[in-house]
Design a protein around this nucleic acid. Structure first.
Length: 247
DNA sequence: AACTCCTCCAACCGCCTATCT
DNA sequence: AAGATAGGCGGTTGGAGGAGT
């Protein structure tokens, strides 16, 4: 059932007591982001008045905290984060917001959802057939194996690209030696071989997964060094934003 | 192909606490 | 001091979509 139809059935997306409910639209997100830019976080009940949003304060706060905050880390929970969640849950119980503080970029809602789907049922697994439980475990192990293999392939790709860069540097150095009277060519070499000197360091690319405004060759060289997780996360974010526009 | 099961995740609700008047 | 309001938190719901049967 689509959100639109659901809204008709359940009154979601409809205005109830002056407040809109249900999925947020891209336009509403924009208004909320603008509001936070101008007034900062807090005073959520003013949002409707100051930003023209027909949402109550609670809804606005939730949307911001769980979805719009720029420091949110998106994408899959890593094995390390999973360990932290298990450890802290064992220590603190269902104090999700406390646990979330130890995992920057993760929200209490996210952690709560993750724990419920992955660990809560483990307590019940005694009631399910051992075959089913084993199959589930196997699927999970296969997924983790695939993930590890993917990481390995990525590392190999990076190594291969590094080798190519080294080769290119060597060739350019030889060319430079034989023809060091051409400064423009040297400049070009520096731009290609040492992008960080132009302010486009690897870490910067890796962190933001953006394409530097350089030549096509630059893009080809550095393309494979992007943080794929980051891209996936951002793609999901874009996808979510895009889907909200449908309503 | 159709159905079921499972996971993910956005969003809501109700309760509690802190702060304000 | 007491009531009102806002914010924070944990629990719950239910649709989407992928995987398995």
């Amino acid at each position: 059932m689509s959100w639109g139809i659901m809204a008709q059935h359940m009154g979601w997306g409809a205005i109830e007591e002056g407040w809109r409910k249900g999925p947020w639209t891209a336009e509403e997100d924009k208004l909320l982001i603008e509001y936070v830019k101008l007034h900062g976080e807090g005073r959520w009940n003013n949002v409707s008045r100051l930003a023209g949003l027909k949402r109550n304060g609670k809804s606005c706060r939730l949307r911001w905290v769980n979805y719009l905050r720029p420091d949110l880390k998106r994408g899959q929970i890593t094995p390390h984060e999973e360990r932290v969640i298990l450890e802290l849950h064992a220590r603190w119980g269902n104090r999700w917001s406390t646990i979330a503080r130890s995992l920057p970029g993760r929200t209490d809602n996210e952690i709560k959802n993750y724990w419920r789907t992955h660990f809560k049922k483990k307590g019940k697994t005694s009631s399910e057939s051992p075959e089913k439980a084993q199959a589930r475990l196997l699927r999970r192990q296969q997924f983790q194996l695939q993930h590890q293999q993917q990481q390995l392939r990525q590392q190999q790709l990076q190594q291969h690209q590094q080798d190519q860069i080294d080769n290119m540097r060597r060739i350019l150095a030889l060319l430079d030696e034989s023809d060091n009277k051409v400064p423009t060519f040297t400049q070009l070499r520096q731009e290609i071989a040492y992008p960080e000197e132009q302010g486009y360091g690897y870490s910067m690319i890796n962190e933001y997964a953006t394409v530097p405004e350089g030549s096509n060759e630059d893009n080809i060289i550095w393309d494979g060094l992007w943080n794929l997780d980051d891209i996936t996360g951002r793609a999901n974010y874009q996808h979510n934003l895009a889907t909200t526009t449908l309503f």
